[in-house]
Design a protein around this nucleic acid. Structure first.
Lengths: 185, 185
DNA sequence: AAGGGTTTGTTGATATATCAACAATTCGCA
DNA sequence: TGCGAATTGTTGATATATCAACAAACCCTT
């Protein structure tokens, strides 16, 4: 990974943080580029050095998180389901504002292409390699159905957990969801 | 006040914040320029664009706060002592980390020139115009003594209040200290 | 006191961010 | 509908921050 200039990182992080904050206050279409610039304490023009427009910014923001989640999948490989899920729930907890905002906000017209959908796709992709093909318990099931089932279940639980203010600690969630996913796949 | 470039403000604020944080962890002489740069997430060289060395940085940091306190004096003029003090104590509260660190840390060799002394001088200066010259209650007292008395008392109380984790809310402190200062001056 | 590692202050070349100004577009509303 | 105001996206000139590299000063430890 080539080193990125410090200023780029700082600017992009302020911008992303600003968008998240603003989205928890107004709907995405009401947010203006100037709003974002002000909140991030960055010149308006600077935004265009990094992003096409606010849709692109939101898009990249989502992409960033999905990538980080994707990274964890590799790390978590070779682990028990229950243990592997802990970092996920901790990640959701640490980025509470982002997830609650994303799952709460209605999609704007153009770009956002439903965060929920992208999250689901990401999870299903990750589940692919985790399906039990040995014990034979899944021989009568098609992957499509299985993935859809486990994926929506997972997303659904996360959504519920976030929306309800994370009523259980990450470890407890990981254990329970881990058990259930283990049964399903 | 000519507008200052955004980047300058950001950089200087990170640097000042970094110094305060670090001073609450190590003694000032143990802090290295590189430490400050790292903590502030700024290139080491950038520090020299703004300050001579770490002593200068600390000096300017103190100066900044003393100036802000000085500003409040003008604003607070024409007010009852009790009311006038409220913003002060609120300021101390808001900058708790700074004041507790500054009042706690032993002076390093070169520059710091005792924060406590500078604070005292600043207050005494501010008290000058507040001495009661009309009622005649102070005719037998010399300004020197009076200022020294009230100044050290004020600083002493603040020091105590900060050191003990601000056991009373700012308004309560303002009321009590205000009463006492009113009697003294 | 010598030596090896660390910290410092400085430099020059380069990258990025800023600012102000502009025309083009969109928005709110009369 | 159409006007005025706000927002957008771009530009060019400039300011600031970055990075890497350097020699000098400064520990410490032997």
């Amino acid at each position: 990974m080539a080193k990125v200039d410090r200023r780029i990182v700082k600017t992009q992080e302020s911008l992303k943080k600003a968008v998240i904050e603003l989205m928890s206050e107004k709907s995405f279409d009401e947010i203006t580029i100037q709003d974002i610039a002000d909140r991030a304490n960055v010149n308006r023009g600077t935004i265009y050095l990094h992003y096409q427009d606010k849709y692109d910014l939101l898009d990249k923001l989502i992409e960033t998180h999905l990538n980080e989640i994707g990274e964890m999948e590799k790390w978590a490989c070779e682990m028990d389901w229950v243990d592997a899920l802990v970092p996920y729930f901790e990640y959701f907890e640490n980025n509470y504002l982002f997830f609650s905002t994303m799952l709460a906000s209605k999609d704007a017209k153009g770009a956002p292409s439903s965060f929920r959908k992208r999250l689901l796709a990401s999870f299903m992709e990750g589940f692919k390699d985790e399906i039990d093909r040995e014990s034979g318990k899944n021989t009568d099931l098609s992957d499509d159905v299985l993935l859809q089932y486990a994926g929506t279940a997972y997303v659904g639980v996360i959504e519920w957990w976030i929306r309800n203010g994370m009523p259980y600690p990450p470890k407890v969630m990981a254990k329970q969801v881990g058990t259930l996913l283990g049964r399903s796949l």
